[in-house]
Protein backbone atom coordinates (compact mmCIF):
# COMPACT_ATOMS: atom_id res chain seq x y z
CA UNK A 1 0.00 0.00 0.00
CA UNK A 2 1.63 3.27 -1.04
CA UNK A 3 2.21 6.01 1.42
CA UNK A 4 -0.16 8.35 -0.40
CA UNK A 5 -3.04 5.97 0.04
CA UNK A 6 -2.25 5.73 3.72
CA UNK A 7 -2.17 9.52 3.95
CA UNK A 8 -5.49 9.77 2.11
CA UNK A 9 -7.05 7.27 4.41
CA UNK A 10 -5.76 8.92 7.57
CA UNK A 11 -6.79 12.44 6.56
CA UNK A 12 -10.19 11.20 5.43
CA UNK A 13 -10.57 9.47 8.77
CA UNK A 14 -9.73 12.70 10.59
CA UNK A 15 -12.27 14.49 8.43
CA UNK A 16 -14.94 11.93 9.04
CA UNK A 17 -14.61 12.24 12.80
CA UNK A 18 -14.14 16.02 12.67
CA UNK A 19 -10.62 15.98 14.09
CA UNK A 20 -8.80 19.16 13.06
CA UNK A 21 -5.44 18.45 11.51
CA UNK A 22 -2.65 20.83 10.56
CA UNK A 23 0.87 20.60 9.28
CA UNK A 24 3.44 21.98 11.74
CA UNK A 25 6.61 21.22 9.83
CA UNK A 26 7.52 19.38 6.70
CA UNK A 27 6.36 15.85 7.13
CA UNK A 28 4.83 16.46 10.55
CA UNK A 29 1.17 16.92 11.35
CA UNK A 30 -0.64 17.68 14.54
CA UNK A 31 -4.23 16.95 15.51
CA UNK A 32 -6.29 18.41 18.31
CA UNK A 33 -8.46 15.65 19.61
CA UNK A 34 -12.06 16.44 20.54
CA UNK A 35 -13.38 14.99 23.78
CA UNK A 36 -15.50 12.48 21.94
CA UNK A 37 -12.41 10.89 20.41
CA UNK A 38 -10.03 11.01 23.37
CA UNK A 39 -10.65 7.40 24.32
CA UNK A 40 -9.70 6.29 20.83
CA UNK A 41 -6.41 8.16 21.10
CA UNK A 42 -5.64 6.76 24.56
CA UNK A 43 -6.57 9.92 26.40
CA UNK A 44 -4.34 12.32 24.49
CA UNK A 45 -5.53 15.83 23.74
CA UNK A 46 -3.04 16.42 20.98
CA UNK A 47 -1.03 14.14 18.82
CA UNK A 48 1.79 14.75 16.40
CA UNK A 49 2.48 12.23 13.72
CA UNK A 50 4.39 11.59 10.57
CA UNK A 51 4.21 9.15 7.69
CA UNK A 52 7.94 9.34 7.11
CA UNK A 53 10.23 6.85 8.81
CA UNK A 54 13.27 9.14 8.65
CA UNK A 55 11.39 11.97 10.25
CA UNK A 56 10.17 9.58 12.95
CA UNK A 57 13.73 8.42 13.66
CA UNK A 58 14.81 12.00 14.23
CA UNK A 59 11.79 12.93 16.33
CA UNK A 60 11.05 10.04 18.62
CA UNK A 61 8.11 11.78 20.21
CA UNK A 62 6.13 11.54 16.97
CA UNK A 63 3.69 8.77 16.28
CA UNK A 64 4.65 7.08 13.06
CA UNK A 65 1.77 6.06 10.84
CA UNK A 66 2.87 3.54 8.29
CA UNK A 67 1.88 0.11 7.13
CA UNK A 68 1.76 -2.14 10.15
CA UNK A 69 1.87 0.60 12.72
CA UNK A 70 -0.42 0.40 15.68
CA UNK A 71 -2.34 3.61 15.07
CA UNK A 72 -2.97 2.83 11.42
CA UNK A 73 -4.27 -0.57 12.43
CA UNK A 74 -6.64 1.04 14.92
CA UNK A 75 -7.86 3.52 12.33
CA UNK A 76 -8.51 0.83 9.74
CA UNK A 77 -10.23 -1.43 12.25
CA UNK A 78 -12.48 1.35 13.32
CA UNK A 79 -13.38 2.24 9.77
CA UNK A 80 -14.20 -1.23 8.63
CA UNK A 81 -16.42 -1.74 11.64
CA UNK A 82 -18.78 1.04 10.48
CA UNK A 83 -21.69 -0.25 8.42
CA UNK A 84 -22.51 2.20 5.66
CA UNK A 85 -24.79 2.29 2.66
CA UNK A 86 -24.89 4.90 -0.09
CA UNK A 87 -26.97 5.69 -3.11
CA UNK A 88 -25.49 6.96 -6.34
CA UNK A 89 -26.99 7.90 -9.69
CA UNK A 90 -25.24 7.08 -12.91
CA UNK A 91 -24.29 9.97 -15.17
CA UNK A 92 -24.97 8.42 -18.54
CA UNK A 93 -27.42 8.35 -21.41
CA UNK A 94 -30.54 6.42 -20.55
CA UNK A 95 -30.33 2.71 -21.35
CA UNK A 96 -33.00 0.57 -22.82
CA UNK A 97 -34.86 -1.32 -20.17
CA UNK A 98 -33.83 -4.95 -19.74
CA UNK A 99 -36.03 -7.54 -21.41
CA UNK A 100 -37.35 -10.41 -19.41
CA UNK A 101 -35.86 -13.61 -20.71
CA UNK A 102 -38.07 -15.55 -23.08
CA UNK A 103 -39.10 -19.00 -22.02
CA UNK A 104 -38.61 -21.74 -24.59
CA UNK A 105 -41.65 -22.12 -26.83
CA UNK A 106 -42.90 -18.62 -26.22
CA UNK A 107 -42.58 -15.68 -28.53
CA UNK A 108 -40.69 -12.68 -27.40
CA UNK A 109 -42.91 -9.92 -26.14
CA UNK A 110 -42.80 -6.49 -27.61
CA UNK A 111 -42.32 -3.88 -25.01
CA UNK A 112 -44.17 -0.62 -24.86
CA UNK A 113 -41.83 2.27 -24.39
CA UNK A 114 -43.15 5.70 -23.81
CA UNK A 115 -40.97 8.14 -25.72
CA UNK A 116 -39.42 11.01 -23.84
CA UNK A 117 -39.70 9.31 -20.49
CA UNK A 118 -36.73 8.35 -18.28
CA UNK A 119 -36.54 6.85 -14.85
CA UNK A 120 -33.89 5.45 -12.55
CA UNK A 121 -33.83 1.70 -12.34
CA UNK A 122 -32.21 0.44 -9.14
CA UNK A 123 -29.43 -2.05 -8.72
CA UNK A 124 -27.60 -2.97 -5.54
CA UNK A 125 -23.91 -3.66 -5.05
CA UNK A 126 -23.07 -5.74 -2.03
CA UNK A 127 -19.39 -5.61 -1.06
CA UNK A 128 -18.24 -8.69 0.81
CA UNK A 129 -15.15 -9.77 2.62
CA UNK A 130 -14.53 -13.47 3.06
CA UNK A 131 -12.04 -14.59 5.67
CA UNK A 132 -10.51 -18.08 5.64
CA UNK A 133 -8.96 -18.79 8.99
CA UNK A 134 -6.96 -21.87 9.87
CA UNK A 135 -3.23 -22.03 10.47
CA UNK A 136 -3.00 -19.20 7.98
CA UNK A 137 -5.41 -16.42 7.31
CA UNK A 138 -6.55 -15.37 3.87
CA UNK A 139 -9.03 -12.76 2.91
CA UNK A 140 -10.85 -12.28 -0.33
CA UNK A 141 -12.91 -9.32 -1.37
CA UNK A 142 -15.93 -9.70 -3.63
CA UNK A 143 -18.64 -7.49 -4.93
CA UNK A 144 -22.02 -8.70 -6.05
CA UNK A 145 -24.22 -6.63 -8.33
CA UNK A 146 -27.87 -7.56 -7.97
CA UNK A 147 -30.19 -6.31 -10.69
CA UNK A 148 -33.74 -6.90 -9.57
CA UNK A 149 -35.22 -5.70 -12.85
CA UNK A 150 -33.82 -8.60 -14.84
CA UNK A 151 -33.30 -10.88 -11.82
CA UNK A 152 -29.61 -11.22 -12.43
CA UNK A 153 -26.74 -11.43 -10.02
CA UNK A 154 -23.20 -10.72 -11.08
CA UNK A 155 -20.28 -11.63 -8.84
CA UNK A 156 -16.74 -10.39 -9.27
CA UNK A 157 -13.54 -10.44 -7.30
CA UNK A 158 -12.49 -7.22 -5.67
CA UNK A 159 -14.63 -4.43 -4.30
CA UNK A 160 -17.22 -2.47 -6.19
CA UNK A 161 -15.61 0.93 -6.22
CA UNK A 162 -17.33 3.55 -8.26
CA UNK A 163 -15.63 6.07 -10.47
CA UNK A 164 -16.82 9.33 -8.92
CA UNK A 165 -16.72 11.03 -12.33
CA UNK A 166 -19.47 8.73 -13.59
CA UNK A 167 -21.87 8.98 -10.67
CA UNK A 168 -23.51 11.64 -8.59
CA UNK A 169 -25.23 11.50 -5.24
CA UNK A 170 -28.42 13.28 -6.23
CA UNK A 171 -30.85 12.33 -9.01
CA UNK A 172 -31.52 14.56 -11.97
CA UNK A 173 -34.52 16.72 -11.21
CA UNK A 174 -37.78 15.31 -12.50
CA UNK A 175 -36.49 11.79 -13.03
CA UNK A 176 -38.34 9.35 -10.82
CA UNK A 177 -36.68 6.42 -9.14
CA UNK A 178 -38.26 3.05 -9.54
CA UNK A 179 -38.83 1.09 -6.43
CA UNK A 180 -38.11 -2.38 -7.67
CA UNK A 181 -40.33 -4.18 -5.28
CA UNK A 182 -37.68 -6.84 -5.03
CA UNK A 183 -36.97 -7.79 -1.50
CA UNK A 184 -33.54 -6.54 -0.44
CA UNK A 185 -33.21 -9.37 1.99
CA UNK A 186 -33.87 -11.88 -0.71
CA UNK A 187 -31.32 -10.25 -2.98
CA UNK A 188 -28.82 -10.36 -0.16
CA UNK A 189 -29.46 -14.03 0.52
CA UNK A 190 -29.14 -14.85 -3.14
CA UNK A 191 -25.88 -12.93 -3.29
CA UNK A 192 -24.63 -14.87 -0.28
CA UNK A 193 -25.54 -18.06 -1.99
CA UNK A 194 -23.56 -17.16 -5.08
CA UNK A 195 -20.67 -16.17 -2.92
CA UNK A 196 -20.73 -19.50 -1.14
CA UNK A 197 -20.64 -21.27 -4.48
CA UNK A 198 -17.80 -19.06 -5.69
CA UNK A 199 -15.61 -19.69 -2.67
CA UNK A 200 -16.36 -23.40 -2.65
CA UNK A 201 -13.29 -24.39 -4.71
CA UNK A 202 -10.95 -22.34 -2.54
CA UNK A 203 -12.46 -23.83 0.58
CA UNK A 204 -11.90 -27.27 -0.85
CA UNK A 205 -8.31 -26.43 -1.68
CA UNK A 206 -7.58 -25.16 1.81
CA UNK A 207 -9.33 -28.07 3.44
CA UNK A 208 -7.42 -30.50 1.29
CA UNK A 209 -4.10 -28.88 2.16
CA UNK A 210 -4.93 -28.68 5.84
CA UNK A 211 -6.19 -32.20 5.88
CA UNK A 212 -2.85 -33.36 4.52
CA UNK A 213 -0.94 -31.40 7.13
CA UNK A 214 -3.19 -32.57 9.90
CA UNK A 215 -2.91 -36.20 8.84
CA UNK A 216 0.86 -36.01 8.73
CA UNK A 217 1.09 -34.44 12.16
CA UNK A 218 -1.55 -36.71 13.59
CA UNK A 219 0.29 -39.75 12.29
CA UNK A 220 3.46 -38.53 13.93
CA UNK A 221 1.72 -37.92 17.25
CA UNK A 222 -0.08 -41.22 17.08
CA UNK A 223 3.08 -43.14 16.19
CA UNK A 224 4.89 -41.42 19.01
CA UNK A 225 2.18 -42.32 21.48
CA UNK A 226 2.17 -45.95 20.37
CA UNK A 227 5.92 -46.24 20.67
CA UNK A 228 6.00 -44.69 24.08
CA UNK A 229 3.19 -46.95 25.28
CA UNK A 230 4.99 -49.96 23.85
CA UNK A 231 8.14 -49.07 25.74
CA UNK A 232 6.24 -48.52 28.95
CA UNK A 233 4.33 -51.76 28.62
CA UNK A 234 7.58 -53.62 28.05
CA UNK A 235 8.91 -51.99 31.17
CA UNK A 236 5.79 -53.12 33.00
CA UNK A 237 6.46 -56.70 32.00
CA UNK A 238 9.88 -56.56 33.59
CA UNK A 239 8.67 -54.90 36.72
CA UNK A 240 7.41 -58.12 38.25
CA UNK A 241 10.94 -58.76 39.40
CA UNK A 242 10.91 -55.57 41.38
CA UNK A 243 10.29 -55.65 45.10
CA UNK A 244 7.62 -53.00 44.94
CA UNK A 245 6.23 -54.13 41.67
CA UNK A 246 2.65 -53.10 42.49
CA UNK A 247 3.76 -49.59 43.00
CA UNK A 248 5.87 -49.65 39.86
CA UNK A 249 3.01 -50.99 37.84
CA UNK A 250 0.78 -48.23 39.08
CA UNK A 251 3.38 -45.66 38.19
CA UNK A 252 3.63 -47.03 34.68
CA UNK A 253 -0.14 -47.10 34.30
CA UNK A 254 -0.28 -43.49 35.43
CA UNK A 255 2.47 -42.58 32.99
CA UNK A 256 0.50 -44.22 30.16
CA UNK A 257 -2.63 -42.37 31.16
CA UNK A 258 -0.72 -39.07 31.27
CA UNK A 259 0.64 -39.77 27.81
CA UNK A 260 -2.83 -40.42 26.49
CA UNK A 261 -4.22 -37.27 28.08
CA UNK A 262 -1.37 -35.23 26.69
CA UNK A 263 -1.89 -36.83 23.29
CA UNK A 264 -5.59 -35.94 23.30
CA UNK A 265 -4.80 -32.38 24.20
CA UNK A 266 -2.23 -32.09 21.44
CA UNK A 267 -4.54 -33.63 18.86
CA UNK A 268 -7.25 -31.18 19.87
CA UNK A 269 -4.74 -28.36 19.39
CA UNK A 270 -3.93 -29.74 15.95
CA UNK A 271 -7.60 -29.86 15.00
CA UNK A 272 -8.01 -26.31 16.16
CA UNK A 273 -4.94 -25.25 14.21
CA UNK A 274 -5.85 -26.92 10.93
CA UNK A 275 -9.60 -26.66 11.11
CA UNK A 276 -11.00 -24.13 8.66
CA UNK A 277 -13.43 -21.39 9.62
CA UNK A 278 -14.93 -19.15 7.00
CA UNK A 279 -16.48 -15.81 7.81
CA UNK A 280 -18.46 -13.67 5.42
CA UNK A 281 -18.77 -10.03 6.19
CA UNK A 282 -20.94 -7.56 4.32
CA UNK A 283 -18.78 -4.47 4.26
CA UNK A 284 -21.34 -2.12 2.81
CA UNK A 285 -23.90 -1.75 0.09
CA UNK A 286 -24.36 0.78 -2.67
CA UNK A 287 -27.65 1.39 -4.41
CA UNK A 288 -27.18 2.47 -8.01
CA UNK A 289 -29.74 4.40 -9.98
CA UNK A 290 -29.29 3.62 -13.66
CA UNK A 291 -31.10 6.01 -16.02
CA UNK A 292 -33.42 3.92 -18.16
CA UNK A 293 -35.71 4.84 -21.01
CA UNK A 294 -39.40 4.62 -20.34
CA UNK A 295 -41.55 4.62 -17.28
CA UNK A 296 -41.00 2.53 -14.22
CA UNK A 297 -41.97 -1.12 -14.55
CA UNK A 298 -44.93 -0.79 -12.23
CA UNK A 299 -46.43 1.78 -14.58
CA UNK A 300 -45.75 -0.45 -17.62
CA UNK A 301 -47.84 -3.19 -16.17
CA UNK A 302 -50.65 -0.76 -15.59
CA UNK A 303 -50.33 0.42 -19.15
CA UNK A 304 -50.47 -3.14 -20.44
CA UNK A 305 -53.63 -3.85 -18.58
CA UNK A 306 -55.14 -0.74 -20.06
CA UNK A 307 -54.01 -1.78 -23.51
CA UNK A 308 -55.32 -5.28 -23.02
CA UNK A 309 -58.73 -3.82 -22.20
CA UNK A 310 -58.67 -1.53 -25.24
CA UNK A 311 -57.61 -4.40 -27.60
CA UNK A 312 -60.76 -6.33 -26.82
CA UNK A 313 -62.83 -3.34 -27.91
CA UNK A 314 -60.85 -3.03 -31.14
CA UNK A 315 -61.42 -6.69 -32.01
CA UNK A 316 -65.21 -6.26 -31.65
CA UNK A 317 -65.41 -3.30 -33.99
CA UNK A 318 -63.12 -5.07 -36.51
CA UNK A 319 -65.58 -7.95 -36.72
CA UNK A 320 -68.33 -5.54 -37.66
CA UNK A 321 -66.17 -3.84 -40.21
CA UNK A 322 -65.14 -7.12 -41.77
CA UNK A 323 -68.55 -7.72 -43.32
CA UNK A 324 -68.03 -8.48 -47.00
CA UNK A 325 -68.69 -5.83 -49.52
CA UNK A 326 -70.21 -6.85 -52.92
Amino acid sequence: MTRNKIQDLVFSFMNLFKIPCRSTQEGIWQITIPDSEKAFFNGFQELSFTFDREVAEKHRDLEMIAEGSYLLKKIVERLIGIPKVSRMYKLAKPELPPIEPTEPGKTTELMVISPGKVHYRQQVIFNFKVGFLSDARKERLFSVLADPANHKIYLKKGLGNLDPARYQETPEPGVPTEESGEDILRLYLQSCRQLEAAIGPEVEEIRSRNSGLFEAEFARHQGFLEEQKKELLKKKENVCFHLYFFQKEEEIDRAIKDLETDHERKVAELKEKYGLKVEIGLINAIVLGVPTVGVPASQIKKKRREMAMSQVTVVSSAKLEALPVA
Binding site: M1, K5, I6, D8, L9, S12, F13, L16, I75, V76, E77, L79, I80, I82, P83, K84, V85, S86, R87, M88, V124, N127, K129, R137, K138, E139, L141, L159, N161, L162, P164, Y167, E169, I184, L185, Y188, L282, I283, N284, A285, I286, V287
Partner: peptide
Protein backbone atom coordinates in the same frame (compact mmCIF):
# COMPACT_ATOMS: atom_id res chain seq x y z
CA UNK B 1 -26.85 -3.63 10.30
CA UNK B 2 -25.89 -2.85 6.70
CA UNK B 3 -29.13 -4.45 5.50
CA UNK B 4 -31.14 -2.51 8.02
CA UNK B 5 -29.71 0.77 6.75
CA UNK B 6 -30.38 -0.31 3.21
CA UNK B 7 -34.00 -1.13 3.93
CA UNK B 8 -34.56 2.09 5.83
CA UNK B 9 -32.79 4.19 3.19
CA UNK B 10 -30.27 5.46 5.73
CA UNK B 11 -27.80 6.57 3.13
CA UNK B 12 -24.42 8.11 3.89
CA UNK B 13 -22.31 10.24 1.55
CA UNK B 14 -20.38 8.06 -0.86
CA UNK B 15 -17.10 9.50 0.37
CA UNK B 16 -17.68 7.74 3.68
CA UNK B 17 -18.56 4.44 2.07
CA UNK B 18 -15.56 4.70 -0.23
CA UNK B 19 -13.34 5.40 2.76
CA UNK B 20 -14.38 2.14 4.31
CA UNK B 21 -13.66 0.31 1.07
CA UNK B 22 -10.20 1.87 1.08
CA UNK B 23 -9.72 0.65 4.62
CA UNK B 24 -10.72 -2.85 3.64
CA UNK B 25 -8.36 -2.91 0.69
CA UNK B 26 -5.60 -1.70 2.96
CA UNK B 27 -6.40 -4.35 5.48
CA UNK B 28 -6.56 -7.18 2.99
CA UNK B 29 -3.74 -9.72 3.24
Amino acid sequence: EVLRKLILNEFSPYSETALILKGEEMNAN
